[in-house]
Design a binder for these strands. Structure first.
Length: 775
DNA sequence: CAGTGAGCGAGCTTCCGCTTGACTT
């Protein structure tokens, strides 16, 4: 039995700390929050000062019992959750859930996992900060009220199972508004004039790239300019040198790690977190969910030693970075390697690459600035008043650039930059060629997962632990999709001046190509429109920032948490009631035209199962006909003709084995139906042209496949089969499936064996995995 | 690498923020 029980949030942290503290200390983990509001209800007593109805999270019951036992046996319990709002609440919840006694409980905090920091923390205990706990409670209750009152309203007015919340709804809004901006963007073009000069210096030939600062709006003006240069001489007018410096970026936080891993390694945000978690658990990096750019003294010293021994002391420049992020809580260090002298790790390829990125970024953050010299050369044209400008950048001292340079999201790669030869004022240059190239303006870039995270963080919305889950949520709700889009070919004009002749050519380029970008869906657009119309204040970009200010006041004891909630809830709830009663169905209905066959109106709108086309009015006596939109169609873009085409199915294409064969398009794509069985069309098939022969081929193909997938059948019990599925052999019985125990050969199972597996209550299908029926 | 194919009738869905395992259909 240990005299002392220390409770931290993460088990990996517990393991490390136990090593520092010795025999008298038992270190356990709470695995995050242990108490929360009941999921099935509102969980807030509105009538009674918004009293939260906490319960021990169902999946934490066992853990809490264990911790309770350990606490009872210990002489002192040290609550060592993180020093931020959530961490303080975790300590408070532990105090309650473990029925701790005040006289044998101490609250301690530390920001870095070193023996020194922990010893110091143990020497300086405090009590739980109830103001900070109240601030967390306000945050929790506000999010619950917003989420659990807005979502049901969406179920009523838009479509069941939808969700809204302080964070996710703003994320969707950003994507929807960016798409609108792109849709409304009008492309314009202008001509950019560039020139390549040749100069001989000390017997060596050099090229000089230069650009005209002015742009010409039309081809005619560009041509006129080129013509004005015919027969011109080009002379260096001035050479200006400017010293410059570049500084390294701060060490990684969760969000900057996600951004750089996306830009440099093409990782999704979720993948970055998964890989970082593996590195953390194996002790290779510090904690990966952090908003702090701070490094411990120990880390800075390790970096300093490492830089000195690798590159020399002139490359060292240690710094402390300050966090600029709104609402940062800084309970942890920045993300860095645990041991700076390890510049690589064993593990999967992803782990190696992510670790390499973290190592470089951390080391570079403690290195000297790069010293540059920027040269600007202006070049006179003898036949007109214009001047070309050539710029060059020379690195005088590479500094941190030796190790790492942060990437940018900027897609503009047009700049002409590089090394310039040593030019002098008055020097004559020979023109090799001059080009006037048509360039088009570009709309704002669509969000990637990582650039969305960046934007959310800038707005102070969401936390390091929620960036990745927020993206999963809006994808799962089908508010947005992550997609590639092929580009379109576009032609552009190039005028070329060479050897005193002007040539006019048309070239083509690909534009608008997108890779892994976030696009709003019809549902996302509609839900956003609803929320903007009725709950503008909630999905306002500043809503979080404003309530965060109030949470801070609560944390400082200057405001009472439930008074703040009351002030918010009054008008909010009134608006909910008002909208429930007065707003009609919000289906985004759009009239497309008249169906020539029936003379009925054709609409596109969002129905119970998503976007659909409706022929005929809902009020009319004749029952309207419905058809869901295909995945590649959108309410925005569909026209009458395409809408009517959806009703050409099911189409009868003949008889097979005396039963009708029909072809139709469902929500899983086109299929053939025969004898109430379904057969998906292959990607190469076309539902519009498929014939009976091909349909029969599909039917027979599936039959043979099915026959092969049956391992065992029993005469006595036709409802039971042993099948070979995607996850290996399994037992199918009355539409439920059961795993076969490890080590048994499926071919040798008897009916009795199978029945005992099926009837074993341990194998009963678990509720949370039961597929939701659309009925 | 299997399964799915509705059109609102019934019961359910839902939030954000802390943390890890998880072995289904």
């Amino acid at each position: 039995m240990s005299k002392n029980l220390v409770i931290v949030e993460s088990p990996a942290k517990a393991k490390t700390i136990e090593g520092f503290l010795g025999k008298d200390f038992l270190v356990k983990s709470s695995y995050g929050h242990v108490m929360d509001l009941n999921k099935a209800q509102l969980g807030v007593d509105i009538e009674n000062g918004f009293e939260p109805q906490y319960e021990i999270a169902p999946d934490k019951k066992k853990l809490v019992a264990e911790l309770k036992k350990a606490a009872k046996e210990a002489e002192m319990v040290w609550l060592a959750s993180d020093e931020d709002r959530e961490g303080e609440a975790i300590s408070w919840h532990l105090f309650k859930a473990l029925s701790l006694k005040e006289e044998k409980t101490k609250r301690i905090v530390f920001h870095e996992i070193t023996k020194q920091a922990i010893t110091k923390a143990i020497e300086n205990p405090r009590s739980i900060d109830t103001n900070l706990v109240s601030a967390q409670q306000a945050r929790r209750v506000l999010d619950r009220l917003v989420g659990y009152e807005l979502s049901p309203l969406l179920w009523k007015k838009v479509k069941p199972s939808l969700s809204a919340g302080r964070v996710q709804s703003v994320a969707v809004r950003l994507i929807v508004e960016r798409e609108e901006e792109i849709k409304n963007f009008s492309v314009s073009s202008s001509f950019r004039v560039t020139a390549v000069f040749v100069v001989e210096i000390d017997g060596q030939k050099h090229q000089v790239q230069a650009e005209l600062p002015e742009r010409y709006n039309t081809e005619k003006e560009a041509l006129a300019y080129l013509e004005s240069c015919l027969g011109a001489d080009y002379v260096v007018h001035s050479v200006e040198k400017k010293p410059g410096k570049k500084s390294p970026a701060p060490p990684f936080t969760t969000s900057t790690l996600q951004q750089e891993a996306s830009r440099k390694l093409s990782f999704s945000v979720a993948n970055t977190m998964r890989v970082a978690q593996q590195l953390y658990e194996s002790g290779k990096i510090t904690y990966m969910r952090t908003d702090s750019v701070n490094l411990s003294d120990l880390a800075i010293n390790m970096a300093k030693n490492e830089i000195t021994s690798r590159y020399g002391s002139q490359y060292v420049k240690t710094r402390r970075f300050a966090t600029k992020t709104k609402g940062a809580q800084e309970a942890h260090e920045a993300i860095r390697p645990t041991y700076m002298d390890k510049d690589f790790v064993e593990g999967s390829a992803d782990e190696k690459r992510l670790y390499d990125l973290i190592w470089k970024r951390t080391i570079a953050s403690q290195m000297a600035e790069a010293e540059l010299e920027r040269t600007i050369v202006t070049i006179d044209v003898s036949t007109n008043k214009s001047q070309f400008v050539a710029t060059g950048e020379v690195i005088l001292f590479d500094g941190f650039l030796k190790v790492y340079l942060e990437s940018t999201d900027d897609e503009n790669g047009d700049a002409v930059e590089g090394l310039l030869p040593p030019l002098k004022k008055g020097q004559k240059l020979n023109l090799n060629e001059m080009l006037a190239t048509q360039r088009f303006t570009r709309h704002a870039a669509r969000y990637t997962e990582a650039s969305l995270v960046k934007k959310l963080e800038e707005l102070g919305i969401g936390r390091p632990s929620t960036f990745a889950p927020t993206i999963s949520t809006i994808l799962k709700r089908e508010y947005v999709v992550k997609e590639d889009r092929p580009g379109e070919k576009r032609s552009f004009k190039v005028l070329q001046l060479q050897k005193d002749k002007i040539k006019n050519t048309t070239q083509t380029e690909t534009t608008g190509q997108e890779k892994a970008k976030l696009f709003p869906t019809d549902i996302g657009i509609l839900v956003n429109k609803f929320l903007v119309q009725y709950f503008d204040s909630i999905i306002d970009y500043n809503f979080t920032a404003n309530v965060e200010k109030e949470f801070d006041e609560i944390a400082e004891g200057r405001k009472v948490w439930n008074e703040m909630i009351k002030e918010f809830y009054g008008p909010f709830h009134k608006k909910i009631v008002d909208t429930t009663e007065n707003a009609g169905k919000f289906s985004g209905e759009k009239f497309l035209g008249i169906d020539p066959a029936s003379g009925n109106n054709v609409f596109v709108k969002v129905g119970r199962f998503g976007p659909m086309v409706q022929i005929g009015d809902t009020e009319s006596e004749e029952k309207p006909r419905f058809s869901g939109l295909r995945k590649d169609q959108s309410m925005e873009e569909i026209n009458l003709e395409e809408a009517l085409k959806l009703f050409e199915y099911p189409r009868n294409i003949g008889k097979f084995e005396e039963k009708d064969v029909t072809v139709a398009v469902g929500r899983f794509g086109p299929y053939v139906k025969h004898n109430s069985q379904f057969f998906s069309l292959a990607k190469t098939d076309d539902a519009a042209t498929i014939d009976l022969d091909r349909a029969v081929e599909l039917i027979e193909g599936k039959r043979t496949k099915e026959a092969q997938s049956v391992i065992l059948e029993f005469e006595k019990e036709p409802a039971l089969k042993v099948l070979n599925g995607r996850y290996g052999p399994y037992i199918s019985y009355n539409k439920s499936n059961f795993k076969i125990p490890k080590g048994t050969e499926p071919e040798k199972l008897s009916l009795e064996d199978c029945m005992s597996i099926v009837n074993n209550p341990e194998n009963a299908p678990k509720k949370r995995f039961v597929k939701k029926k659309g009925k």
